[in-house]
Amino acid sequence: MKEIDELQLPEDLGYTDEHEWAKVTGDTIRIGVTDYAQDQLGDIVFVELPAVGDSFEKGDECGTLESVKAVSELYLPMSGEVVAVNTDLEDSPELLNQDPYTNWILEIKPANSDEYQELLSASAYLELLKG
């Protein structure tokens, strides 16, 4: 188990209290799970992804991460339409353990870009983890 100060928390991402991150990439937003989430889950062995074209509200369940010991829902940090999913994860879900930030899970076209401003900064997320 990583100590809190060992966790990688890139500054250029927005975070949620459900341990997802969001990154602005031009007109779209990439979404993944944090270093803390992958460390807590342990070996991720299966990722259930939504279909491209599906639309979700902020906070909706949009997928599942399954580890050896747990099943964890993925909640969408911002409302929008799924425009891409990372199909590499279907065959290699362990990529999320190896590098949870390079390996994004899905990409959305946000319904309301302002929602990004409501996400936690890296330092606010770190404070949340410290409890």
Partner: peptide
């Protein structure tokens, strides 16, 4: 070893080590 620890039968026990439960299995 930075094992992921949890309570089992009133003992704090390792669930898995950094190699991961899949490699261990």
């Amino acid at each position: 070893q930075s094992a992921n620890m949890a309570e089992f039968g009133s003992y704090e026990m390792p669930l898995w080590y950094p190699s991961g439960a899949k490699s261990e299995h």
